[in-house]
Design a protein around this nucleic acid. Structure first.
Lengths: 320, 320
DNA sequence: TCTTTTATGCTCGAATTGAGCATAATTCGA
DNA sequence: TCGAATTATGCTCAATTCGAGCATAAAAGA
């Protein structure tokens, strides 16, 4: 069986699941739909949009994704990249038995502005699901108020390895907060029983100190993966320009970076980085403004791709 | 169909495919098996080992992978991460019709040393498949001798966008060579008909200026994805230590980084980076040596994970 | 002992980064 | 109309990092 031929027994159902992100009004948002919960059809939950993989129509997985997203939401996706394939058995979805395994191929998509979605989909600020990830106005209070005490209590029953893992993930006891470890943090909270999803999956789970707004099945895990990915990508690819209009002010751009990375940036240094890095060029036009000196409008400078190997924006160094 | 329920029509076969990497004798190697070609059973090709996803046995995809790799090759995998899911229709495999789609979930694994593989698997230097990726002894001659002329000829029939894409991928006309764009380069060569795989997939393909050793189906594309990933990962996670013995000299470590990244490093600066970055600690023991001052043996310093957000090694700046 | 070889320490200038001060160009209220 | 408030933008300065090379140390081998 080492010869590349897949086993015929293994025929799980496969769907494509989309994490579609945009930033509007300085809030990063994710496109969600409301679905009835698997066990309790009267309860509705936020879910990521998912669609079938239709072999008859689509030559590639990415085309399949673009097609059903267009058909279902009217949204024309720009930047798309594959995220991760989720296939653990107990994914908390409508997985009925042990034999039929559900496989979801997750995709990350960035769209330019909040286009009002057709259908029942809606844009939701992602920090509602991850309040501990937004450090733009300082350390999130939920950390001290809820997460740390509950985590401590849980860790008292764990070994030193878990303690170390938690320290690194949450920047405790002298460790630094690493903005990219979004999934690590979510997984710890899940294991510690601090998110509603783990209560659902495990009846014997501990107390209901739930943090953040829950999602259907394992969709919050998928969103965590996407946030970590987009934060990482910012550094070395100019994906940020997928999220802003064709022309923009440097402050607009900065706010979008801050929204994604969850940290505050030093304004003048951000400008220096972006301008001297050759990522943008001025248009000569100034934006109409609502007070203060009117800022110049810039556009993405495509030529940077040939000039520099990794044109991105370095992340925070959280201010203060 | 936006509700997360997968369509029952879509039931492709799924297998797990492993890119298992090691570095021995300063050569990066990949574990391959020999399989008969889909169209011509008399011809054998290098392939990546693949195994089934068995829902009955394995709770997670990663466990399934570890299990069949252990069973088939005797190899106990250490570091494992999911790479990418390959599911385009024309993957060049034993895909018989348009209806049955083959899905391969690729995994990247790093193992510590060249353990002599049981079974028919063998270790193969990956630069045989990608000779243009090895810049350790300067610019690979295959670029000037074969790739650039053929690429130029092909680009003459393309639009300016392709020209730009090729410049960026291969560092032509003033652009910088970016070690991470392994997949971009392979895909261009594929499209230009410069690798044997594209001849197989397209009977009308151009001349046989083939570069690098071919692999079965789309396995070379998968390997390219893995190489790009591991090169990227080096920068911000200490994955390098998955590939060296528990204690090692700094030169050994440097050679492994160079093998993976495909570039030469400045020795003293590498030492400074590693030591002052707190990635290693001396053992006080010196290695037995074959001439020259005996070097000290170091070990990975685990505490660095809590001290620094992104403990990795910055890549070359290719010397000379 | 002298040459060769590899390891390791150190310096120097250039570039990058973090932080803040200063000035410019507007709007808005008194 | 003037001054306060607000936002944009230019500039400096010190600390750190990075690229490159010189110099010395510690061994083997002739």
């Amino acid at each position: 069986m080492i010869d590349g031929a897949p086993d015929a027994r293994a025929a799980p159902t496969v769907d494509l699941i989309a994490v579609i992100l945009a930033v509007t009004d300085e809030q990063p948002r994710v496109l969600t739909v409301r679905v009835p919960a698997a066990e309790r059809p009267d309860v509705h939950r936020d879910a990521l949009p998912a669609g079938p993989l239709d072999p008859a129509h689509d030559r590639t997985l990415e085309l399949a994704l673009r097609r059903w997203v267009r058909e279902q939401t009217g949204l024309e996706l720009g930047y798309v990249e594959q995220l991760y394939t989720f296939g653990d058995r107990d994914r908390g979805g409508d997985d009925d038995g042990a034999t039929a395994r559900a496989l979801s191929i997750g995709y990350l998509a960035l769209v330019r502005e909040e286009q009002p979605p057709a259908s029942a989909a809606r844009w939701r600020p992602w920090y509602e699901h991850f309040p501990w990830e937004d450090w733009r106005r300082g350390r999130p209070s939920v950390l001290e108020a809820a997460i740390e005490p509950a985590l401590d209590a849980w860790l008292a029953r764990c070994d030193a390895g878990q303690r170390e893992r938690a320290d690194i993930a949450f920047g405790l006891r002298g460790a630094a907060w690493d903005a990219y470890r979004v999934l690590d943090r979510y997984e710890l909270l899940y294991e510690a029983g601090l998110v509603a999803e783990s209560q659902r999956d495990d009846a014997s789970a501990s107390d209901p100190h739930r943090v953040g707004r829950a999602m259907a099945a394992d969709h919050r895990r998928i969103l965590a993966t996407a946030i970590g990915r987009v934060r990482g990508k910012l550094k070395y690819r100019p994906v940020i320009f997928e999220l802003v209009p064709p022309t923009f002010t440097l402050l607009q751009l900065q706010r979008v970076v801050e929204a994604l990375s969850g940290g505050a940036l030093h304004k003048q240094n951000f400008r220096r980085l972006i301008e001297r890095g050759g990522l943008v060029e001025g248009t000569g036009v100034r934006a109409t403004t609502r007070g203060g000196r009117p800022p110049e409008l810039f556009r993405f400078r495509r030529e940077v791709l040939r000039e520099r190997p990794t044109p991105g924006v370095t992340l925070p160094s959280i201010r203060r």
